[in-house]
Design a protein around this nucleic acid. Sequence first.
DNA 1: TTGTATGCGTTATCAT
DNA 2: ATGATAACGCATACAA
Lengths: 319, 319
Amino acid sequence: MTNIKDLAKMSGVSVSTVSRVLNNHPYVSAEKKAAVLKAIECTNYNRNINAVHLSRGKTQLMGVVLPVTDTPYFALLLKGIAKRALENDYKLVLFQIDYAEEKEIEALQMLKQKQIDSLIICSRKCELALIQEHIQYGTIVLCEKTTEKSLPSVFIDHYEIFFQALEYLYQKGHKKIGYSVGRKTGSNSSLREQAYRDFLEKYKLPFYSDYIMDDCLYFEDGEKVMQRLRSMDIQPTALIITSDQVAAGIMIECQKEGISIPEQLAVIGFNNEPIAKMMNITTIDIPLVELGGDLFLQAYHGYNSNKQISVKLIERETV
Amino acid sequence: MTNIKDLAKMSGVSVSTVSRVLNNHPYVSAEKKAAVLKAIECTNYNRNINAVHLSRGKTQLMGVVLPVTDTPYFALLLKGIAKRALENDYKLVLFQIDYAEEKEIEALQMLKQKQIDSLIICSRKCELALIQEHIQYGTIVLCEKTTEKSLPSVFIDHYEIFFQALEYLYQKGHKKIGYSVGRKTGSNSSLREQAYRDFLEKYKLPFYSDYIMDDCLYFEDGEKVMQRLRSMDIQPTALIITSDQVAAGIMIECQKEGISIPEQLAVIGFNNEPIAKMMNITTIDIPLVELGGDLFLQAYHGYNSNKQISVKLIERETV
DNA sequence: TTGTATGCGTTATCAT
DNA sequence: ATGATAACGCATACAA
């Protein structure tokens, strides 16, 4: 492997001059530049980027923490992040951590160790305090509401939108409303449960713990939801499902069983995934790709702000 | 930032001893080790990983090239890769390159520059010769049949399976068969077209160029397929669709229009995605997660082999 | 078992 | 405009 020292020797200049040519610095004469360029050409030279990183203290690498990549929510978020990364010539280090907290901490470690310049945490499991400790080592951006915690974030207000969806169903006459989430852990789920409990409180409605169904991430989980529904003494008349693909699974299951939607069961999906449009599912439109892009840009520029992304309910035919 | 030099000074040993402690080398006395450990504790020391990389010439980073991450095919492949990476404590650098060849070359560059130790190319656009040139810099594993090109790979035989699907439809009485692909570029698509042409040749069937439909990646593209079908003078009686989610889109569209499947239109999907099971779609089962895992392991161990993953047709109710 | 000295490849500082 | 040299932080061959 040839290095700049070799190049310097070959082209009869110093290493500094070679470095200047490599980095397009001004103040280097045309002849010398040509000589260096020629040497680079001849030797098929390649810069050792690790040396550059060590010297500069930066890596042009951004970490992305997410539990899984094969659900629409995270896939679209990642799509938005990756798109902006591509535009800005930044590389992404993927931490697909499958809800393992220790791996989340590992990502924080990598920031500390300067292997990555910044970090986007799409879904958090560790304590906020731990994240706080690490912001000194690089930019960290969260995808949850952190306005009062002085941590950078781009987020949607899950409490607000969930409450809104519940109100919508209530206006339509529903009093027994269940819902599904991906995982019970995570700040989004907490916010949703809070909204749910506040809603019940507001209208003096009873709380049934089995109305909250977790582990609903994939299409086929729609089947599971319907099974659970059957096992309930008092069945809900409406469901809020936090992914359209799960909602679609429910619809297909209902079709098989002859349950008519929305007459016998109302369904609100989430994300406004393409499948929601095709199957006419009433849903919450969340601009996930845009959200991902904003996450990237905020991490990229190191802004310490909190940006809320607005969402809206799209009325279709399942309520 | 404290470094090993500081630690050495603090604990009254040499930098080498500190390094040994850091790397769990044997032959270091308990007292000195304790002293170093204490110094590490006190100073909240962190190793600068870039310096380690420079010194070692390795980064523990593996690159993954793929066009998009939000289609089931690539999402599941990535899932398999990420799973193995997690197990083996390896980090992934994601090149979500959106079919841009120059970005593919950039990944090759990063291998050359030692920013990544190895590279998995899930979908290729650049010349094989270019890849050949780069294997000297690190392990590269492809996800396509490369048996004769002496390039490492884990693959499925798209020609064979496509031909088999065509034969299956022919046995069922279909003579006008169309198909869809994600992109026309890419080796998989070429193989499929070859199988298609050979099939037509074998049974002396006519070739209609509009029977090959590209840009079918997402659920909503099912709508597009049906539109194209309507515009044809002679409509196919059967379709091979290279993603179950597109096939699902087609089924929903057909349901809306009152076209009965398989009576009026037969459909074979691909990948055996969860949606295929729920909607009873006849499909080609491809163990994508396993395939992804094998891609990782081969890149990880640097094996120079060619592993074929077997697939099978799953008969359900759409043919 | 421990320490010294050198290398890794580049950038940055400071002369000239 | 150019060059010498000192960082950057760590690993390791070699000597002791």
